[in-house]
Design a protein around this nucleic acid. Structure first.
Lengths: 214, 214
DNA sequence: CGACCTGTTGATTCTGCTCAATCAACGTGG
DNA sequence: CCACGTTGATTGAGCAGAATCAACAGGTCG
C-alpha cells in the first residue's frame, strides 16, 4: 500500500501516487481531449466515475436559480474530480482552457476503498480551503487568498499562472469580474505582485500578499 | 454491511446507522458533557479522533489573523465531527449550548475504512452546501438559505430551532450579527417566517422562503 | 434591583455591484 | 493589408447594500 489512509495517522499523502495506483489497478483507458468550454459531464448525469486531469484545467460549476454561475472548484493536472454522492451529478464539469482527462474506473475492486478515502479527504480539504476564502470579508482579501492558493497548488517559483479568466475567478470567489480586476490593481499598487500578462502573476512580496489576504 | 459505501452507487446512507456500527466495533466510551462555550479540541491539537454529538450543538471554528472568527460547520445530535487531514487540527471545536460528545476510537480496525469513507463523503456534502450558501449574493439570501438548511437537518414540522446565537450565524455566513438580524426582519415582513422566540423560527410560507433564498 | 449580555433598530460610512466607456488582442473578410 | 467585429480586461461614475458606530430594549443572573 502506497498510502496510509488511516485518518488517525499522517495523511499528508501524495495524490499522484494514489492516482498511479488506481490507474494500474483499473482497466487502461484513453485520455480524452476536451477543448475550451467543452462539458465533461453535465448536471444530472449519472455519477460514479472518477476522472484524472492529465493536462489543462477543469472547473466544477453549478447554476443558481437566477442564472448565476457558482464555480465550486478548479482542478489541475494530476488531480482527481468527479467525487460526488448520490447517483446523479449535482454539478457539471467543464474544460477551462483545453484539458486532457482520463477516466478512472474503480468499480468492483473493493481493495481500493482506502485509496478512495484518501481522495475523498483530499477533496474535503479543498472544500474547506474554499470555504475559508469565501468567508473572507473584502474582495482584496479574497483575491489575495486565491493567488496564495494558486501558488500552493501550481507554482514553485515567483511566477504563477492563472489559466482561467477573470470571470471564472469571480464566480469562484463570489465576486464580479470587475471587482476581481480592481482587487488585482490594489495588489499591484501595494507592490505585492506584478501582472506581466493577463494569465501570469509575478510575486514581488509574498509577506505583503499574506498580509493583504487577512 | 449496513451501508453501501461505493461512491459509484447510491450513497444516500443513514449516518446514524454508520455511527451505531462504529460504536459497536470500538471500545465503549463515556459521553462527556461540555458546557456552553467549552472547547472540545483546540487548534493545533493532535488530530485523529472522531466524535459523535449525543445532544446539543458543536461548532467548528477558525480564527483569521486579524482576529475574526469563521465558523466552518455546525454539528447536531447524531452527527460526527473531527474529520481532518494531517496530524494537527486546523480548526477548533466548541460546544455551542451545552453538548454531550462521545469519542469514537477507530484505530486498528481496517474493516471500518468503508464506513469512514461514507462519513468523509458526508462531510464533503456538508462543505459543498456551505459553499453554496456562502456564494449567494445578498444577506437575505444567505440567511434564508441557512434556515432552509436547518429545516433539512433539524426539523420535520413547521417550527425549527436555531440553537446558536446571532453572532454564530453571522460568523457562519460571513456577515455581521446586525445584518443577520435585519435579514430576519425582512423574512418576517415578507411573511415567510415568524420568530416567536429568539431561538425559534416558525415557517409560514416555505415556497416564499425558497424564493427569497435565490 | 442593578449589571450584564443578547438582540434589535437607527444613522452613517464605505465597499462592491451595476451600468458604461475604453482599450488591447485576435480573427475574419473585403 | 487594413477595416471591422468580437471577446476579455481595465477603468470610471453612481448607487444599493452591508459594515460600522451607536443607542436602546428585553432577558438573565448576580
Amino acid at each position: 500500500m502506497l498510502v496510509d489512509t488511516g485518518f488517525h495517522h499522517d495523511v499528508t499523502f501524495n495524490s499522484q501516487a494514489i492516482v498511479a495506483h488506481l490507474l494500474d489497478a483499473g482497466q487502461p483507458s484513453a485520455t480524452t481531449f476536451h477543448p475550451e468550454g467543452a462539458i465533461i459531464y453535465a448536471d444530472g448525469d449519472r455519477a460514479g466515475r472518477l476522472y484524472v486531469v492529465e493536462f489543462g484545467v477543469v472547473r466544477i460549476c453549478r447554476l443558481t436559480s437566477d442564472g448565476r454561475r457558482q464555480i465550486h472548484a478548479f482542478h489541475f493536472a494530476g488531480e482527481v474530480f468527479g467525487f460526488e454522492t448520490g447517483t446523479e451529478h449535482q454539478f457539471y464539469a467543464e474544460s477551462v482552457n483545453g484539458a486532457g482527462v482520463r477516466s478512472l474506473r474503480t468499480s468492483g475492486s473493493e481493495a481500493l476503498t482506502s485509496n478512495l478515502l484518501a481522495l475523498a479527504l483530499n477533496g474535503l480539504v479543498k472544500a474547506q480551503q474554499h470555504q475559508l476564502v469565501l468567508g473572507r470579508r473584502s474582495a482584496t482579501e479574497k483575491v489575495a487568498g486565491f493567488i496564495l492558493d494558486m501558488i500552493e497548488r501550481l507554482g514553485g517559483d515567483d511566477i504563477v499562472g492563472l489559466p482561467m479568466q477573470r470571470n471564472d475567478i469571480a464566480d469562484y470567489l463570489g465576486l464580479t469580474f470587475e471587482t476581481v480586476s480592481r482587487a488585482l490593481r490594489v495588489l499591484r499598487e501595494e507592490g505585492a505582485v506584478r501582472v506581466p500578462t493577463v494569465h501570469q502573476i509575478e510575486i514581488l512580496d509574498l509577506d505583503k500578499l499574506h498580509e493583504l489576504a487577512g
